[in-house]
Design a binder for these strands. Structure first.
Lengths: 334, 334
DNA sequence: ATTTGGTACACAACCGATTGCGTACCGGTA
DNA sequence: TACCGGTACGCAATCGGTTGTGTACCAAAT
């Protein structure tokens, strides 16, 4: 059974032409009832499955959507992709995944592979090291729609979905200040990400508002690896005046940093307090989770991303890009 | 730029035929140097990208591999898919993901969608509710290779990759007994999974060996939802003689069960001990993780799965299915 | 001048479908 | 009998490539 049955085979066995078979299978009215039935019957009997590649060639579509993100193993992204898949499947699309591993070159390659492979549209969350949009401009030139989500590219005309992290950071820091914690450090992400700028902006805003001096050594950026986070956290704890609280770039950074604290004998939520972004489900299993988290609703973001992408694919003429901001929510744990 | 440039367009502008353009782009020796250069030049100038669908049609391949698994958000699976993607990308394949959500119907649908969509091969980890292989037999009939991994189907001729969980369970239970814990309960998975049988078998083997009577109420199966796990764990704790230790189906079951224990005031690793399967990375963040875990190496399993699949795709004639058993490892935490 | 051989390309079939248009054949009407 | 309209298909182009085979044209050899 190495060759699948084709319409040609059905046509041959029935003594009709391929076009008749095609129309019969589509129940086209110009095909006689008798012929239509014979075609359907033989098709079923031969386990006929239409060749999607041939159909795609005519339709000039692949019904594949590429998704490029830093890492599938980060729950934030797997939730987003899960959402994308849920919507896509319902609309007849499949989802092709590629990981950038936060590496610029891998991201370029992933994008290029997707284009070469044939996809109708792309959803991207930037690699932390990406500082150049040329590969995306290339995709735009080919008329393939892109939607950025969460880690969006700066200065690109495409649609994007993200959370207002500045506002989130503001509420988070306000919360810490309100609890009397004023020595607040920021374990921020890579400088290349817009998300990093936004967290910093919120952090600075609140401290300024409350007249709290901003200590340079309190603001550090990590490259999102466990090692770098540990290094930066240790540096913070080695300061003459170590912080009472940490605003972490995301849950992974918070957890890695918390581990350092525990190793140094500090008690979480007592000696030192954490607030982080994402609020991933596994945080609920921790005995001492961050006292507050900013929920970013990855599922909703993924859903919105593909809802923006599909019209761009299906009706490019009437499509205008949109910047969608998903509301965050500060989750406070007792 | 709604229509991508085709070879036809290049041919027209250069006054040659499409076949010449095709061969020129492939640097076929029968094309003159001058012509070849002109073709390459114009192709670059027009941003020519070959239409993958057309090529796939001739090659009778899609270079897409379908992966169907219960949930992307489970780290075990996202690690496996990550591995699959790493290998696939290197061989020129893309990975299409579908989630079954442990639902039989969704699994059927996912498989059917993949076949309709056109993929060269499928990698599957069974939905917990799947008890029927007809959809896989259908795929076999079409000559599309399948590789099962981790949650493998019973009585199927296809290749599969899994961990010898019986041996793992034996070592795990031996470890508990050696620590003097003899009142051991088993929070097992759904009866439809072979993995469930295997864990049970290992559990029974060790208890029999040590002459420990097997208490029926100590063996319970959960459907892998948080609610069901909580219910079953509560039932265990409500027994006249509650267990001292729990062998959990996987980390998620263990964590959900541990949460119940904590809510009831029990101290983990003191009042009650857990051993579970998977050893997911996030366990390292827990203050009180299971005292031991059986590492199942999802990355290695994913890698092996696609290494089994690719030869089946590329050389179906000389392919014979294989059952590969990945060695587990019991990770003991101090 | 004719044959020979190689170069450099054209022609056309093919992959598996879809679809616009043409037409044979039918019975019914003038 | 000749004309007409509808039914039920066939023919062929098309999507965008790949590839086997045919051939015009050239220079070199005879």
């Amino acid at each position: 059974m190495v060759h699948a049955t084709t319409m040609k085979e059905i046509a041959r066995q029935l003594g009709v032409t391929v076009s008749t078979v095609s129309r019969a299978l589509q129940n086209h009215p110009s095909i006689g009832l008798r012929t239509r039935e014979r075609v359907h019957e033989l098709a079923k009997q031969l386990d006929y499955v239409p060749n999607p590649t041939a159909i795609n060639l005519k339709r000039r579509r692949t019904y594949n959507i590429g998704v490029v993100l830093p890492a599938l193993t980060e729950q934030f992204f797997s939730m987003a992709i899960s959402a994308i898949e849920d919507v896509a499947i319902g609309k007849g699309y499949s989802v092709v995944v590629m990981q950038s591993r936060n590496d610029y070159e891998r991201e370029r390659l992933a994008i290029s592979n997707l284009v070469k492979h044939g996809i109708d549209g792309i959803i991207v969350s930037l690699a932390s090291e990406t500082q150049n949009n040329s590969h995306f401009l290339e995709v735009n030139k080919h008329g393939i729609p892109i939607v950025f989500f969460d880690r969006v590219a700066k200065n690109m005309p495409n649609s994007c979905v993200y959370v207002d992290l500045t506002a989130g950071a503001i509420e988070a820091v306000e919360y810490l200040v309100a609890r009397g914690l004023t020595k607040i450090a920021l374990l921020n992400g890579p400088g290349t990400l817009q998300a990093t700028d936004e967290r910093l902006k919120g952090y600075v805003t609140v401290l300024n508002k409350h007249g709290i001096a901003i200590s340079r050594p309190y603001v550090r950026s990590v490259n999102l690896t466990k090692e770098d986070t540990a290094k930066k956290m240790n540096e913070l704890l080695d300061l003459d005046e170590p912080p009472q609280a940490i605003l972490a770039f995301n849950d992974y950074v918070a957890l890695d940093a918390m581990q350092v604290c525990r190793q140094r004998g500090l008690v979480i939520n007592q000696d030192i307090h954490f607030v982080s972004f994402s609020n991933l489900p596994f945080c609920s299993y921790l005995e001492q989770p961050p006292i507050a988290s900013i929920e970013q609703f990855p599922y909703e973001m993924g859903t919105k991303a593909i809802q923006l992408l599909l019209p761009a694919i299906e009706d490019p003429q009437h499509y205008t890009p949109e910047k969608v901001i998903i509301p965050y929510q500060l989750i406070v744990r007792e």
